[in-house]
């Protein structure tokens, strides 16, 4: 096979593989998605799940009646229940979960602006924030978030997605959603928010 034939063969292979897999992230190719590990829009609330509540070991803690989001700040620690979060001013944002595994899906999120919660306990605007999950283990149970993300008006402590209360696998009772951050840093099943030490 000459150089031209070789390049045609390699090009055809790459094009064929993209055609039958890229549909997990691109609507245009979705009908051709034969082999991607995910299907666009498949999953609770039309959104894929990377780690289920069961895999994370948070099924009981996340559904507990006594769950409350712990906010830590210079003016003290406050615990806010989900009904209290729901009564706070709500904001919405259309943001993607963009996973480093290679899929990306945009959703309509609703919840409380993170900056409103930080202001409530007096966290200075230039502080890096630490977000902790109910998860006991795992490399992403806690995330640090620089102030430019934490103070972004689109960064939410999300309570609802695509018009419904968050599914357990999407981080019920509350999760973070911020623009421009990879999916693994969009901490689910929030337990605690405060300045990073």
């Amino acid at each position: 096979m000459g150089r031209r034939g070789f390049l045609v063969g390699i090009g055809a292979s790459a094009a064929a593989l993209v055609a039958v897999t890229a549909g997990q992230s691109f609507d245009l190719l979705a009908p051709l998605n034969l082999f991607a590990p995910r299907v666009k829009g498949a999953g609770p609330q039309a959104l894929p799940v990377n780690r289920t509540a069961r895999q994370a070991g948070v099924t009981a803690a996340a559904q507990s009646e006594t769950w409350a989001l712990e906010l830590i700040g210079p003016s003290g620690t406050v615990s806010i229940t989900r009904p209290e979060l729901e009564r706070m001013p709500q904001a919405s944002a259309r943001l993607p979960i963009a996973c480093v595994e290679g899929w990306s899906t945009t959703a309509e999120w609703e919840g409380v602006r993170l900056r409103d919660l930080l202001d409530r306990v007096g966290v200075p605007p230039d502080r890096t924030i630490r977000l902790e999950s109910l998860q006991a283990h795992g490399p992403y149970r806690a995330t640090t978030m620089p102030p430019e993300y934490a103070r972004d008006p689109l960064t939410l402590v999300a309570l609802r997605v695509n018009g419904e209360p968050l599914d357990l696998d999407h981080g019920y009772p509350a999760r973070i959603i911020a623009p421009g951050r990879p999916g693994v840093l969009q901490t689910k099943w929030l337990a605690r928010i405060g300045p990073d030490r």
Partner: peptide, 19 residues
Amino acid sequence: VLPVIESGFAVAATIILFV
């Protein structure tokens, strides 16, 4: 003919390796 056969083989092999 040979490049056609070999290209077909490359496409199939790439997809098999993925699946």
